[in-house]
Design a protein around this nucleic acid. Sequence first.
DNA 1: ATCAAGACTGACAACCATTGTCAAAACCTC
DNA 2: GAGGTTTTGACAATGGTTGTCAGTCTTGAT
Lengths: 134, 134
Amino acid sequence: MTVQPAREHRRTRQRAAVDEVLDETADFISAQELHALLRARGAGVGLATVYRTLQTLADDGRVDVLRSDAGEAVYRRCAREEHHHHLVCRSCGATVEIAGPTVERWAKSVADQHGYADVSHTLEIFGTCPRCAA
Amino acid sequence: MTVQPAREHRRTRQRAAVDEVLDETADFISAQELHALLRARGAGVGLATVYRTLQTLADDGRVDVLRSDAGEAVYRRCAREEHHHHLVCRSCGATVEIAGPTVERWAKSVADQHGYADVSHTLEIFGTCPRCAA
DNA sequence: ATCAAGACTGACAACCATTGTCAAAACCTC
DNA sequence: GAGGTTTTGACAATGGTTGTCAGTCTTGAT
Ligand SMILES: [Zn+2]
Ligand SMILES: [Zn+2]
Ligand SMILES: [Zn+2]
Ligand SMILES: [Zn+2]
């Protein structure tokens, strides 16, 4: 019995294109925006494919997802893959990655106190970045 | 020139009905669910009106809003109107209101350090409540 | 009580992000 | 190259939410 190589996803032109945009984009971006970008730069990719690719990346923890004020899902390739949070500019989307060890412990302890198990949490900070503060 | 009394919203049967359901419901509930509830108990209210009413209540800070995993907006009348957060059961929706003074200060300080102004944040803790832990 | 002004309602259409469909295309292994 | 699997993409379908607008209801004033 041979050890099966971890079945990775295939590398296709479409996935490479999505990956490239994510690497070049510092801010959170929606699937629709990403799709428009790709179309604009010639390397067209089907909208459904963009959604599927982002979904997969998110499942694999290779991109972070959060919901904009409008409820639209937005994606970002973060420098660190470990758990962290974000300080996001409401106006231009400029993002700073944040670590908060104290908050992590606090959240866990609060959940424990109330007997909640299998705990997770969401935490994002929004504001107006220096460049957008006219 | 007489001083105008603060123009409040009008009191209508529909808004009273929505209010009543919110007071009776301990868990976060979606607009669609609330609409179905009202219809079921006879006091029918138009779906658009339910949405508008919840929107208004949220704007006035009279109900809390957050997004379910599915991206659907869910609403809840909380005991305290001051800023707070929630510990929510992923399975049954049972909710505990949480205050986190330390987190509040931390969030503000992080934003300040990066020059972000007009700061707000979202923070919710999810888990499985004691009753749902089979 | 009556009335006018305008806030509110609701059935329905419109929107729009996201997902489902499925035949064609790309890819991999033998 | 053949056969089997994965991926793609145009299009339809879904579903929450908002827009429309004529008719209804509240309210404050008469
Ligand atoms: Zn900015
Ligand atoms: Zn965290
Ligand atoms: Zn529960
Ligand atoms: Zn807070």
